[in-house]
Design a protein around this nucleic acid. Structure first.
Length: 117
DNA sequence: ACAATGACATAAG
DNA sequence: GCTTATGCCATTG
């Protein structure tokens, strides 16, 4: 049984480039009951230079984290745009085009089996 | 054991 | 679009 944070990181690494998942989606896979808040906590704990593509996780409505770089640009948005993710006029990710479809039940079961979770 | 802390989600005003 | 309020949950002190 690996830890909760490790499961979060594992799932986030499985999100393909140019696609995004919501905190709730990740939580459904790594937790019995939706632990969306704690997913955010786990990503917040990541260090700079991590290999976990944290920027591919957004809020339920496509909201990105409000972190700005030294030039005032949103860090998460810039990373996503570099992968080809398009944004709407209101600053949200275009979920209709880029939301990850997630896993089917058998795949989720296999993951939990591997985790003994 | 308890309380506080969030990069959440949803609903309501 | 905003702000609250409520439910939620793993981690930390």
């Amino acid at each position: 049984m690996i830890g909760f944070f490790q499961r979060v990181y594992c799932v986030v690494r499985l999100v393909p480039a140019s696609q995004v998942a919501t905190y709730g989606q990740v939580a459904e896979i790594v937790s019995h009951r939706g632990a969306a808040r704690t997913v955010g906590w786990a990503l917040h704990a990541l260090e700079e230079g991590t290999d976990v593509p944290w920027h591919r996780v957004v809020g339920a409505q496509g909201r990105v984290a409000p972190f700005l770089d030294e030039r005032g640009f949103n860090v998460q948005r810039r990373l996503l745009e570099k992968e080809g993710v398009s944004f709407r006029a209101d600053g949200m990710v275009d979920l209709d085009r880029h939301q990850w479809q997630g896993f089917a039940e058998p795949e989720i079961a296999a993951l939990r089996q591997a985790w003994r979770f």
